[in-house]
Design a protein around this nucleic acid. Structure first.
Length: 109
RNA sequence: UCAGUUGGCCAGAUGGUCGCUGUAAGGCUGUUAUGGCUUUAGAGAGGAAAGUCCGAGCAUCUAAAGAACAGAGUGCAAGUUAACGGCUUGUGGAGGCAACUUCAAGGAAAGUGCAACAGAAAUAGACUGCCCCGCCCCGUGCGGAGCGAUGAUGGAAAGGUGGAGUAAGAGCCCACCGAGCGAUUGGCAACAACCGCUGCAAUGUAAACCCCACUCGAUGCAAGGUUAAGUUUGGACAAAUGUGCGUUCUUUCACGUCCAACAAAAACACCGCUUGAACUUGCUGGCGACAGCAAGUCUGGAUAGAUGACCAUCCAAAACAGAACUCGGCUUAUAGACCAACUGUAAAC
RNA sequence: GCGCCUGUGGUGAAAUGGAUAUCACGACGGUCUACGGAACCGUUAUUCCGGGUUCGAGUCCCAGCAGACGCA
């Protein structure tokens, strides 16, 4: 299944309407949807580094999300903050797992 | 040995598990239609992919040629290339003991502008001064003739050094060096060598305007096209004295042209899109850049944008860094390792 | 991807190739005052970085860095 977010309008919708969840190096925007499959988009700004670094970070994030069980019926945008490029793979994994735990709590409440 | 110069080459490798994007063949399935899922095979970032500083292909602007003007660029010679502001080999200047490096290197007697401060004076006259003669009130004076050496400065002061010469001096004369002009020889040429002549007039700046020679249409794949479906409505000019790649003119050729409004937009679509001035190996020609011939190879094509994660071994995996239409250069960033050729003031043997 | 423009004290600006880079506001220090304000005096610059042309560069040329803008 294809879990990517693609259109600019979708991104903007999620930025406006979504609920925010923060950790040190990431911010997650969440919006509920009708469809059973979730969709997720990754956002890494030019401030974080050159194309090389940004690309690598994005791949790692995607790899981590692929192996996780993400709560469905939702759309997400995962936004990286400045220190994220310097982290090891393990640390990234822990943080992203944390952030999704937080989200589940919020949704259940 | 040490120190250095130049050129070239590599840019982690191997194995395993999971995952991503095309291609080819097969299977299952679905739509009005481009499809979706899956199996097997095989492929999948760079030397700079970067900066966007040059040059081309390709596409559109209705087509083509010439002249003048405007604008932009280039500037030693010969070669090389599809082309270039690139590259190669030379010439000249500058640097280095040397190997070698480096230079936007045409024109300042076509014209215009600028040259602060300092200095007597900044492109050429005056002033200061030197020497001789005359006059008088005999001086720190005046007049006349000759001279261009001296004058603290400055980036630059009217060829330089030495001699001869003179009342004092001066390319006035001589030697050497420099400069200009001409001939001869060598070189395709830039230019060099040597000989002769000219006593020497000519400040710097053209990366100030400018002059000379040569080159150049504009816009960039967000170009442009397909699916595509508009004989739509209104306005302006108007069958040529109109429009058609900066302006004007000439010749041929073609044709109605322009503006606004509305309609339409499936879309997660397709073409352009990757076989190319391609790459690898060998041979031949050339000092070299490069060219020719033969054989072999197919080697990314994404579109929120594909290369990642983990484990093992190699001491350690640690540089700069990610294709976005494609090539040829230039410039900038860059850990570490290797190869070849060459140089030496110095030290040791 | 492509095109275009700008960099001067803390901020906003000026400077024809020519002496120690000027002005306003701000900040800091001082004078004045019992204290403060105003006033006066002073301090605050690697002209984004590196080369070149020139006697001399903030200015001219080349290359780099940073920022901003336009084309959907």
């Amino acid at each position: 299944m294809d879990h990517r977010l693609k259109k600019n309008s979708q991104f903007n919708y999620i930025y406006k309407k979504g609920e925010k969840v923060h950790t040190e190096n990431f911010t997650l925007f969440v919006v509920r949807s009708k469809f059973s499959c979730y969709k997720i988009g990754f956002s890494i700004s030019k401030k974080l580094g050159k194309a090389n670094k940004r690309n690598k970070l994005k791949r790692r994030m995607r790899e981590i999300v692929r192996n996780l069980q993400v709560p469905s019926f939702c759309n997400y945008v995962l936004l990286a903050k400045e220190n994220a490029t310097n982290l090891e793979f393990c640390d990234l994994k822990k943080e992203i797992e944390k952030i999704f735990e937080k989200v589940e709590k919020k949704l259940n409440v």
